[in-house]
Structures are given as structure tokens and as C-alpha cells.
Amino acid sequence: MKMHPLQLDDRDRALVALIQKGLPLVPRPYAELGRRIGMAEDEVMQRMDKLRLSGAIKRFGVIVRHRELGYRANAMVVWDVPEAEIAELGNCLARYPFITLCYRRPRRLPHWPYNLFTMIHGQSRAAVCGKLAQVIGECGLDDIPHEILFSRRRFKQCGARYCTAGESVEPARVHEEATA
């Protein structure tokens, strides 16, 4: 899924850097952003639309702290899937709302045989395990080797310039976090 980078000019970049700190909580937030970087409200909105429609901004909304909201368990569940089945299983897993990321990544043999990575968030480890049992049954994954990697400690979140979902998946996500 390679995409060509979008051409951003200096005014786009100024807006990207500014809005990273958050949309101001005032009645005319785009006018307020513009006031800070010498841009009219209309221009701010036009550039925001361009960034969103082009996919440079994939979501624009509130980003929650899922731990504070009670989603305390997050597990990376990794699967060793035959190449011929990966699309089918990946698409099956991706349908569940509690699976927040589902990526194919390379194996690193001999230590790491897994090529499909999913992230499951839940309110407890038991809840995560229950969800895992459900998808194993419903997607027919009984014969697919897998491991659950629960997170024990979060050291750092979103120190880098771009927060990705989930990868926070901050994600972060990215991709949050993206989480990872």
C-alpha cells in the first residue's frame, strides 16, 4: 500500500505543526488557528479540507486516553498464517470492533515465525482472552499457531513528531497506537 507523499507548501506545514497541539476550544476554532499564524479563517478551512481529503489527516476528532477510560488490557496477538490464507484470515479478523489493528508484517526466522499482527483492547486480560476465543472459533483459527503478548508497562507515548494511530495504536495510532 504505497502512496505518494502529498506536496505540502510552507503554509500547509505551518498549519500542520500548529494543529498538532489541538483544535482550540473556542466557538470559532479555525479563525483562532488562523489568527496565530496570520491566515484567514477561510484559508485555514480550505487547507484543512485539502489535508483531510488527500488522506494526510486520516482522522480529525477527539483522541481518548483508553487506559483512563478503563481499557486497561491491550494484547498484541500474533499469528503464523500460511501466505495463501493471510488475506482471508486478515479480513475476517479485521471485522471485529475490538480488533483495532490488523497488519501483515514480516517473519523474523528463526526467532519470530509470526506474520499477522493484531491488537486487541479490553477492560481486563480475561476480557481480551474471551474475545480471542471468540475470533478463533468464528474465523476458524484453531490450527493457526498464535501467541498473546500482553503489555505490562507503557514507557512512552507519542514523543515523536507525529502521533500515529494506536501506534495508538495512538493508535499512535497512528496509530495509537497504533499502537503499536
Partner: peptide
């Protein structure tokens, strides 16, 4: 309250 960027697209 703000954007999640598509890092690759940027």
C-alpha cells in the same frame, strides 16, 4: 482534540 496524521502520506 485534533488530527491523526497519515505519516506516509506526509
Amino acid at each position: 482534540i485534533g488530527p491523526m496524521y497519515n505519516v506516509e502520506r506526509m
